[in-house]
Structures are given as structure tokens and as C-alpha cells.
Design a protein around this nucleic acid. Structure first.
Length: 320
DNA sequence: ATTATTTGACCTCT
DNA sequence: AGAGGTCAAATAAT
């Protein structure tokens, strides 16, 4: 319903758009949808992606590495470091998949460390690790795989979809403080925060996603490298333009870990000093709405949807 | 000068 | 042997 306004708001005036969105049916529909969401806790849909298990390492493989290193390859790790890596790999296996059009905007900063051509895939796969891994010890990684075009692939306006596979939970408490600590040269204690439970998104979430527009100009398929910024600018997250595209999360592994930003980081929650300047009446309205829908203060620790709601609301309305 | 990305080699697993 | 993941030297960007 809002598509014409969204497409032409530069002509008809942003105020009118905001009025239409915040004062009309859209907000009410959103409110209802979120209300249903909070009450609906269905198991996650079947995974589209193959299981991403960590097979662990046998003693034999350790020996293999030892001999390999002895014969003078390009490897440089000491055996003790290797042992630690094995322990980590085998003890903290968890991964989850996100299907999204915005593969790099998840609230954390990532550094690209590799790119591979994957068999049968039309695009290369890019590998990222948490930018401040060395400072925080956070072992979170992800890889991004652009999906082949759906249908005939030539439909204008169909944005490229990316499958983002996250590995290892963020052990830094949240994105901003970890980044700040790293930038200040402060060695941050690695907190063993309780695992954040990934909200299982019911189908209704799809109704919240912004409808794809058919008027977006045709684009060349996104090339595998350098077409996207590999790191996330926090200012962009808080005040940058652009609507959040649809994101679907799937999880698997031992613990349902949350996609980093969608929950704990919530980079744009009103009241956060880093974002306050960017928010006005609309934000307060969203905060009130979320407060009305969410359990009493303090209860959102056990409400898997609470932070997700805030994130979606905040991110979706931040430009108004 | 510093930081981030690219890219080919290396490594493990199947 | 091939596939997928990681490393770090080389290169590019800031």
C-alpha cells in the first residue's frame, strides 16, 4: 500500500509519507503482526542449507598436521596453538544461516579473509571474520554466498539474495562496546554471555518484510568481490539511509545462537547515546509500541522476540 | 604509514 | 583427488 509513497516520497514529501506510515493502517497492521509474533513460538522451518557440523579432529589428524609442518610447508602454527584450535572447533560448534539481501549489515564489523569458488555455485563465496577478533578473542566468522537468481533471473527489481552462514557465537558482549574497546586499545575480557536464543521467525515475519519493488532498475549480478563494503560502519547502521530488506534466519548446531545484531546488539534502540541524535517522534512511538507489546521490563530476557522486534521496528522506521 | 582487501598457496576432510 | 576453509604476502585504499 505504501509503495507509491515510498517510491515517490521525494516528490510528495517525506512528511506525508511519515503520516501515512505512522498514522495509518500500516502501523496498526505491523502492530498486530508483531503481537501475533510474540505469542507464536513455532519450531524453525526445515533448513534449506546442508548441515554445517564441525566434525572435530581425531588424534590421527593431529599427527598428520605435525608431520606436515615438520616437512616444511607454509604453515607456521605451533602445535599448542593447534591443540587450542581443535578444542575450540570441537567444543563450540554452532552455526546458523540467514537468507538476506543485505549480507553485510548485521550489526557487527567483519573483515574479509578469503574468497572461494564453490562447486556448482554461480558466485564465489566470501569468508569473513570478526574485525576485532584479535582484540576480543571473538571467534565468530561467517561466509556469504550469493544465491543464483530465482526464475529466469532477469526480472527487474529482484534483488540478489545471499545466504549468510554464521559460525561460532560472538563471545564479545556486543558489537559496539567490543569495537570501542578494541579501538581504545583496551583488552576486553571475553565474557561468556549466556547464549542468546535465536527467535524462530514464524511466517508472519515475511509480511513485515518490505515488498520488493518492480521499479528498481535492472542490475548486473553482483560480482563476487568488491561490490559490497566488507565492513559495517556503525554510523550507517544508526543513521544511514535505506530500508532493511527481508531477512530469514535458520539455525542449527548445539545451541540456537542468535544472528548477532538482530538481537543483542540492537544498534538503533532509542535511548542509546550513539543513536539518540537520529531519533525523534517516530522512534519514541516505536519504543512505546514495543513496550506495550513486550512483557514487563526485565522479562525480555526470556522473550526471544523482544530484541528482534525492537531491531526490526527501529531499523525499519529509522528513516522517518 | 596504516588498514583493508585480494589472491594463490596451503591445509583438512571426505 | 577434489572441495571447502584459512593463511599471509602482495596490493589497494585511506
Amino acid at each position: 500500500m505504501q509503495q507509491p509513497l515510498l517510491l515517490h516520497h521525494h516528490c510528495s514529501g517525506e512528511q506525508q509519507l511519515a503520516h501515512s506510515l505512522l498514522g495509518g493502517e500500516a502501523l496498526r497492521a505491523l502492530n498486530v503482526a508483531l503481537s501475533v509474533m510474540t505469542k507464536q513460538q513455532q519450531p524453525a522451518a526445515a533448513l534449506a542449507a546442508p548441515p554445517l557440523t564441525s566434525p572435530g579432529f581425531s588424534d590421527d589428524s593431529k599427527a598428520t598436521i605435525a608431520t606436515t609442518m615438520a616437512r616444511g610447508g607454509k604453515r607456521w602454527r605451533s602445535s599448542s596453538v593447534m591443540d587450542d584450535a581443535w578444542k575450540k572447533r570441537s567444543s563450540s560448534s554452532s552455526s546458523w544461516v540467514s537468507l538476506t539481501t543485505v549480507p553485510y549489515e548485521d550489526g557487527y564489523e567483519w573483515r574479509k579473509y578469503g574468497e572461494k569458488r564453490i562447486n556448482g555455485a554461480t558466485h564465489t563465496r566470501s569468508y569473513f571474520r570478526y574485525t576485532y577478533r584479535d582484540d576480543t578473542g571473538c571467534q565468530a566468522t561467517k561466509h556469504v554466498q550469493q544465491q543464483p537468481p530465482q526464475g529466469d533471473g532477469a526480472i527487474c527489481g529482484d534483488p540478489p539474495m545471499f545466504q549468510v552462514t554464521y559460525n561460532n557465537k560472538h563471545t564479545c558482549c556486543n558489537s559496539r562496546t567490543a569495537a570501542a574497546a578494541a579501538m581504545n586499545g583496551v583488552k576486553q575480557e571475553v565474557e561468556q554471555a549466556p547464549p542468546v536464543v535465536l527467535p524462530h521467525l514464524p511466517p508472519l515475519v515475511e509480511a513485515l518484510a518490505f515488498e520488493r519493488t518492480s521499479s528498481v532498475p535492472c542490475q548486473e549480478p553482483v560480482s563476487s568481490s568488491s561490490s559490497f563494503p566488507a565492513t559495517i560502519n556503525m554510523q550507517q547502521l544508526c543513521g544511514g539511509a535505506g530500508l532493511t530488506a527481508e531477512q530469514h534466519y535458520y539455525c542449527h548446531g548445539d545451541t540456537a545462537a542468535a544472528p548477532s545484531s538482530a538481537t543483542a546488539t540492537s544498534p538503533c534502540i532509542p535511548g542509546d547515546s550513539a543513536c539518540d541524535d537520529e531519533y525523534s517522534a517516530g522512534d519514541m512511538m516505536m519504543a512505546q509500541m514495543a513496550a506495550a507489546e513486550a512483557p514487563a521490563a526485565g522479562d525480555h530476557d526470556v522473550d526471544p522476540f523482544y530484541d528482534l522486534e525492537l531491531f526490526l521496528l527501529c531499523d525499519s522506521f529509522k528513516d522517518y
